[in-house]
Design a protein around this nucleic acid. Sequence first.
RNA 1: GCGGAAUUGGUGAAGUGGUUAACACAUUGGAUUGUGGUUCCAACAUGCGUGGGUUCGAUUCCCACAUUCCGUCCCA
Length: 431
Amino acid sequence: MKIQNVKGSMDYLPEEQIIRNKVINTLSNTFEEYGYLPVETTTLCYYDLLASKYAGGAEILKEVYKLNDQGERNLALRYDLTVPFSKIIAMNKGLNLPFRRYEIGKVFRDGPVKVGRNREFYQCDVDVCGIEGQYVEAELFSMAFSGYNKLGIDIYIEWNNRKFLSGLILESGIEEALISPVILSVDKLAKIGEDGVKKELESYNISKNSLDKLFSYFKINISDLKSTFEASNNSLLKEGIEEIINLDNYLNGLGLNEAKFTPYLARGLEIYTGTVWEVFDKNQTVTCAIGAGGRYDRIITNFINDGNTYPAVGMSFGLVPICEILNKNNEENTNSLYDLYIVPMSLDEEIEALKLANALRNKDIKVMIEMKKRKIKKCMEWANKNNIGYVIVIGSDEVKSHEIEIKDMNNYNTNKVSIDDIDAMIDIIKK
RNA sequence: GCGGAAUUGGUGAAGUGGUUAACACAUUGGAUUGUGGUUCCAACAUGCGUGGGUUCGAUUCCCACAUUCCGUCCCA
């Protein structure tokens, strides 16, 4: 048996995992500042539950991992965090709406594998169920800027409205049945250009006039929306325009200038019903979207199907691209994993070293103790290799004199401190 | 999923139908017995993704499979 990972899955070793944890912590803190609470839902689900009325469509079902337990139950691994979100709302009638939750967890999809795209991966979702309108969406935009900025990533957001986009397509004279393929093509506009999109749409027999009209609409400004479509009786379009103007007012009021209205942005097919947005790295360290979100008023409603409506909106932070950016930005980052390294000279100092280490650990110093009895020279080399800032060697002399030396590994300085004076040590190490 | 390319130690890699599979970095030990990054020495793939086939002989040629990368579909 060869030892290897399953296709599309991978392990993260400490160097990487430390960054991932940092990202997860920073984002969790941000979410909680905005009133979203943590949940953890099951990865194992009944297959029927995952396959039920979810608007994710039949497409996704091809990618679901199915399995059976010993009781012959038909089970599956969750493929996103939205179905579990719907599930807990349906199962916990006592939950007060609006319900704001975030969940960072693994999901599974038996789909194509690429660099940033595995079969077992983390999603990092923040959603609220039970609030209509653009006020909460504006707050989510604020949260996105705040979260990414805390990670040291400068972002801009592209946003649009799905009612508006569908309305535009109809308004251009394209028939309703073609809305889906047109949206899919148009979503690639930034990638393949206007000519590329037109080429893709050739096979649908859409008149040149309609296409030209559609593309001219894509250049419109928010301030011209109302007047341009004044005469139209396209209710979808009108609703979309209302929502766009609404959100734009909030965004202007908040001074979020890096949120750009992008009339051709679509984001997938089945899920979204209103505002949609994508987050990008301003420095283009990675060019794909590093986060995205949107309003989906029908998924939970259809899923629960109890006659009530469950409007929902939320966004997803892309753990993989975020970590990629942080990795690239921190390439020559020499941060050490440990603040201090204590080397006991012999068996007689082992307990002393451990006591000292524990005292410092209680003050949040990360301490590593030499436990392999390596020679001092090797210990120093190891400390240098691992960028450990400070080293304390404890031998019989130190124990006898009750005084230790803290070696500063960045220069050749040493500081003498009483072995009991934890605070003095912390001053030196933390400075 | 489909199309193409790749796979040699911990890592980056060179190489060949035939006896010891270069080199570099990393790692470990030593020169240096209680103290520093340098230098020097030594060790480190009975093995070239896995399984078959051709051959006197395969890491090398052929086939299948696995994995990875690049396109494409879709998405996170």
